[in-house]
Each structure stands twice: as C-alpha cells, then as structure tokens.
Amino acid sequence: MQRFANPTRFMRMANAVLPWCAALTVVLIAAGLYLGLVRSPADYQQGETVRIMYVHVPSAWMALFIYASIAMASATALIWKHPLADLIARASAPVGAGFTLICLITGSLWGKPMWGTWWVWDARLTSVLILFFLYLGYIALNNAFDDPTRGARAAAVLALVGAVNLPIIKFSVDWWNTLHQPASLTRLDAPAIHSSMLWPLLAMAVGFTLFYVTVLIFRLRSEIVAAKIRNLRLVQIGG
C-alpha cells in the first residue's frame, strides 16, 4: 500500500480545494460571458464576430496547456515511476481533447465570416488538427492494453513524441506565411488588444483553467476508485 500513500494525501488536499475551484469556475465564466457578450465593444475591423475570440482563444490556450501538462506528467511517470503522474496525464486527456475541439469548431465559425472560408490547410490550423488527433490517439492507446500500466507507458511515450507539435503550433504563425494571424497577447512592442476586450478574454481563460482543475480532480477520484475496483477483483479471483 506504499504506492497509494502519496495519492491519498494528494487527494485529501485536492478534495479540500475542489469546492473553491468549482465555485470560482462558475463565477469567472459567468463574468467572462457578461463582459464578452454584453459589456465589451465590437471590434473596429471585425465587428461583433470578435466575441468568438472569448471562447476560441482561451480554448486554444487550454488545448496547449493541457497537452504540455500531459507531456510533463508523462515524463515524470516514465522517469520516476510516480503513480500519480500517470493518473494526472490519463485524466487530463479528455478535457484537453474537448478544448481542442472547441478551438477548432469556434475557429471555423469565426473563419467563415471573416476570412471567407471554414477551413484552410495552413500551418496553424493543420498543426492544431494534429494536436486533436494526438489527444485521440493518446486516449485510445491508454485504453488499448489489458494491463493498465502497459497502456499508460505506451501512451506516455506517444505524449512525449507529440510534444514536438507544441512549439510548432505556437510559432507556426511566425515561421511560415499562414492565413491565421500572429499572437496578440505575447507581442512585445505594443499591446495589440484593447483592455475592454482583454478583460473578458482573461476572465474566460482563468475560468477555463479552473474548469480543467475541477474536472481533473473529479476524474482523478474516479481513476483511483477504478484502481481500487481492479485490485478488489484481483483479490476476488486470487482468493
């Protein structure tokens, strides 16, 4: 039971912060919706469609952030065999896939009126689509083995290999000519987003992050229960 001592302590802490995370998620997303749909102005070029940004951009950030978390957890799991790391990576993947899907669909809904097309195969859009398939492949590989530790190891290797896609997504708009515009927030010379549009964006981004943490804690709890079920079944068969 040494293996489970650490996750138990971790889950005690996680369960203590869970109600706060859940409450703040609701507050921040509500604030983001109010600021984004009611209070923020239309853009001088894009008009009202700029409001799609408040779901599209935070989803894109979450898609990258969650994949980076999975890659780091996978490295930790492969090198230090930390039992929690595998669970965190495994529990994160569906949430990351969901955010990537939101990013792709809202991007398409934004691209049609503004660019004049639902989809183009430029470097940014294509690399994000690859990210989505990496998520799906990760989830599938994780469940492809009867022995969960073997599935976790195979999926961890895939997660690390796929991590090379992250810098490609981030810098695709700078390295190659793309239809997608470069980043607005990380520009060094001048703020490219007016504050009336920045606040709803940030509220949604923090709200989405807390949503991820909330769902992650529930999913970790679920994974630990599943592990207990597996152990009991083994005991049942063995005894």
Partner: peptide
Amino acid sequence: FIWPSYLIAAAVL
C-alpha cells in the same frame, strides 16, 4: 456564427 460558438463550447464543457 457567434451563438453557435458559445453553444458548442457550453455543450462540450
């Protein structure tokens, strides 16, 4: 274009 974006995001989450 705007409402479906928000609805799909809500549905997925």
